[in-house]
């Protein structure tokens, strides 16, 4: 199981052919209190870089982009009632959606832990 990152602060945790996507702890700190999450529809086909979801803080709306291409297989419905899970638990309870990865090669283009850490210093 590996976790990779985008320069836009999404993470994707790769579990076999599925990826679990959310935003990083750094991102949630920058955004502040999340008050609303617009989830993608299950079955939606996404290309790498497509807008997949929107998270809204008190102050602003931020687009969440697909880190890789694929099809949305599941969304975190808990966020509808409790969007603040992204703040309190961004990498576990605050995941946003799962994607069936269509091109495993795209994973290699993403940032690893060390590269992402360097970005957020």
């Amino acid at each position: 199981m590996t976790t990779k990152f985008t320069p836009d602060h999404e993470y994707i945790r790769v579990e076999g052919t599925t990826g679990v996507v959310g935003i990083t702890n750094y991102a949630q700190e920058q955004l502040g209190d999340i008050v609303f999450v617009e989830l993608p529809s299950v079955g939606k086909a996404l290309k790498k870089g497509d807008e997949a979801a929107v998270v809204e803080s008190v102050k602003a709306a931020s687009e969440i982009y697909a880190p890789v291409s694929g099809t949305v297989t599941e969304v975190n419905d808990a966020l509808s009632g409790e969007p603040g899970l992204i703040n309190t638990d961004p990498t576990a309870g605050g995941w946003i959606y799962k994607i069936a990865i269509s091109d495993a090669g795209e994973i290699d283009t993403l940032l690893d832990d060390a590269a992402y850490a360097e970005l957020t210093v």
């Binding site: 502040g32 209190d33 008050v35 803080s57 008190v58 102050k59």
Partner: peptide
Amino acid sequence: PVQYPSGIMAEH
């Protein structure tokens, strides 16, 4: 400052 560490919600 747009906010302090406690955040907009808590400050509000």
